[in-house]
């Protein structure tokens, strides 16, 4: 029983780490634009297909595949930003209308990405080179006297997620670019007045968010060893779910939300079966939104004077 609990917690944390990365990318875009980018997951899927193609064509190594996934996602993300979000930041359009237009346009591009990859690589499923071929590490027999295994893939995922969180923090709080990003998140009207080129910041944030999403996408497909067009929908849903559980627009919330979602899924799957996994996570979101809509770790509110 204890070993099961520990095992689920360990697996849940690793899965949650990828959710946290997906949610971080989502939150960054939402933070600077205050708009939902529905083709976020589709851009990640596009990156994963670029890597799949590279793997089939050139038998590229793991690191190259990771970089190709990230590059593909960044490219697709920049395409989405230019097409769906940049035009509507033009002065003169009412913010409410602009937000709806951007969201619907990004939905259209999601469909476009799905069509592109299915025409390009028409099989329903492609194998993807595994992140690690060997067996899982047994860390339980010595310490607990029972079976407790740690997959090397999980270890790599957790390490990558931790490194990304640290790097993101350094970028946001220790660089000139980070200062501009935080200014745009805080008070977009005043950012331009301070001399910050807001549209320049937006496209870079999009690229950064897509890169983080691309890495998450790579870790997911390399852990599962397969790619399908469903990856787009899956990434968007998990990222959004984790972002909303953690608290809309909050970066620490994205991390907390991702980890909580991973843990809840792992435990539910073990104790209630795989059918109830998604049911329980959506129920969690529902209860949270009804009881505490700000999320688990909400964005700090400035004190009003």
């Amino acid at each position: 029983m204890l070993a099961d609990l520990l095992q689920n917690t360990l697996d849940g944390l690793a899965q949650g780490a990828t959710y946290a990365l997906l949610a971080l990318g989502f939150t960054l875009i939402f933070g600077v634009l205050r708009r939902a980018n529905l083709s976020y997951g589709a851009a990640i899927m596009f990156g994963a297909y670029c890597a799949t193609w590279a793997s089939l064509r050139f038998q590229s190594g793991l690191l190259v595949l990771a970089l190709v996934t990230i590059a593909g996602a960044v490219l697709a993300g920049a395409y989405v930003e230019r097409l769906c979000f940049a035009p509507h930041n033009a002065r003169g359009l009412r913010p409410g209308n602009a937000a709806i237009a951007s969201m619907v346009a990004s939905f259209a591009l999601w469909m476009q990405f799905e069509e592109i990859v299915t025409l390009w690589m028409p099989q329903h499923l492609y194998a993807f080179p595994a992140l690690y071929e060997g067996a899982a590490l047994d860390i339980g027999t010595l310490t607990l006297g029972g079976p407790l295994t740690l997959r090397v893939e999980s270890l790599i995922t957790l390490a990558c997620a931790t490194a990304i969180c640290a790097a993101l923090w350094l970028i946001l709080y220790r660089t000139r670019f980070g200062l501009a990003v935080r200014a745009v998140i805080d008070e977009p009207g005043a950012a331009g007045l301070s001399g910050i080129n807001v549209s320049w910041v937006l496209i870079r944030v999009f690229a950064l968010a897509s890169a983080i999403g691309g890495l998450a996408g790579y870790l997911v497909v390399a852990t599962h060893g397969q790619v399908t067009p469903m990856l787009g929908m899956w990434s968007t849903l998990k990222g959004m779910l984790a972002m909303m559980i953690g608290g809309l627009g909050s970066l620490p919330g994205a991390i907390v939300g991702g980890l909580v979602l991973g843990l809840v899924e792992a435990h539910t799957q073990w104790f209630l079966g795989p059918q109830s996994r998604d049911l329980v996570s959506y129920l969690l979101l529902f209860v949270l939104l009804a009881v505490h809509p700000a999320g688990l770790w909400p964005r700090s509110k400035p004190v009003e004077t």
Binding site: L179, A183, D186, E187, G189, A190, G195, I196, P302
Partner: peptide, 26 residues
């Protein structure tokens, strides 16, 4: 040309120093 906007619009979650650094962004 620099504008001090109506209602001030300081960056509420950034420190006083960071607000000034943002003003010197150019």
């Amino acid at each position: 040309v620099a504008l001090v906007p109506e209602n001030r619009l300081v960056f509420p979650r950034m420190s006083v120093i960071e607000n000034m650094q943002a003003g010197a962004y150019q």
